[in-house]
Design a binder for these strands. Structure first.
Lengths: 187, 187
DNA sequence: TTCGTCATGTAATGGGTTACATGATTAC
DNA sequence: GTAATCATGTAACCCATTACATGACGAA
């Protein structure tokens, strides 16, 4: 992860569903976004601290005791109304449409109204088409000067981008006709 | 780019071919690896400084003058024998096999002996298979709890990883029989 | 009793992004 | 004469990674 503050969005998104402590947050992050998103503690806890400082979440100490008193300590985080507003703002943001940002937003699409969903999908589509044009232009310009490995690299990048584009198109189609998908399930 | 010092390898790799100044280095980086690799000045120049400090490159001031004296200033970088050794070490390294590291190494495969190339390809293959297994395991475990968007996300991730895997297999095949490719061209 | 998991953090380090700052040359 | 490109850097800020440090609980 490179861009600043990528974690804020998914953390708030998970806390929207229910209160959680740090350790659980990390597990849920992996469950939702895949194993590549196992964030480190040194990344998660500072994020939580920043969110608390910004008033987006509140911390509550909790004592877990299965029987006797004085058990394991937990710090449970709860999202605030301000945090909810921040979440919606971040989610609707259309500035950055690279794979990381798009993935993060798609994971919380259910919290967006249909028109915002469509806007984001179309922004992602435009982003991918730009990338594709750049890739092709680049390949065309330097074709003679690059070796077979680099050529293979660029060809594969183009193919992968085209695949992403087809996927986004599918998502757009499904967004346009949400009933079709259900018809199949009922048939 | 996230991991520390990713730029060192491609910079040394480009300087292996010929001496270059910073501005040109940046352009060649984009030409070789695609437009997403347009690094920022604040990233490139510190890298060059670090390489110079480590003795991997030497700096030479150059005056460009098309006619009259005292023209534009350039700082030309040249790789040293130590730099060449560092480059070979980094290139043969098999520890990190994520997309970024693999891409960077593949771009300079021509500088590696066939057996090292094969070793790297097989390490990448193993990495992708691990990822794939993790993705599938994760999907299997949490299938019921995730919504259709997240499901689509994970399904697409799996498909993309499978595509990467097929690509690596192609590269391995071509590595095993380098003459076949030429036969087709001659036929 | 020891290992694995649960649980929470801090500190050091280092690199990337963005913005800032400057100036020459070329083409229109 | 002015905009675009060439050309080189610095500084501030922020964030992520890694390693470190601690300790309770459950199961074998």
């Amino acid at each position: 992860m490179k861009q600043p503050g990528v974690l804020e969005l998914p953390v708030l998104g998970l806390l929207k569903e229910r209160d959680m402590h740090g350790y659980e947050l990390r597990k849920q992050l992996g469950a939702m976004l895949g194993p590549l998103w196992q964030v480190s503690w040194g990344s998660l806890y500072p994020t939580l601290r920043r969110l608390a400082r910004a008033g987006a979440v509140t911390k509550t100490e909790q004592q877990v005791r299965p029987g006797r008193a004085g058990g394991r300590r937990r710090t449970v985080y709860r999202i605030t109304p301000l945090g909810e507003a921040m979440f919606q703002d971040m989610l609707g943001e259309t500035a950055a449409m690279d794979a990381e940002h798009f993935t993060l937003k798609l994971a919380f699409f259910r919290y967006l109204p249909p028109d915002t969903r469509m806007k984001l999908l179309e922004r992602r589509r435009a982003y991918l088409q730009d990338r594709l044009a750049e890739f092709r232009d680049n390949l065309h310009r330097y074709r003679e000067r690059i070796d077979s490995y680099t050529l293979s690299l660029q060809t594969h990048s183009i193919a992968a981008t085209e695949s992403d584009l087809r996927w986004v198109d599918e998502l757009i189609d499904q967004e346009r006709s949400p009933q079709e998908h259900r018809q199949k399930e009922n048939a």
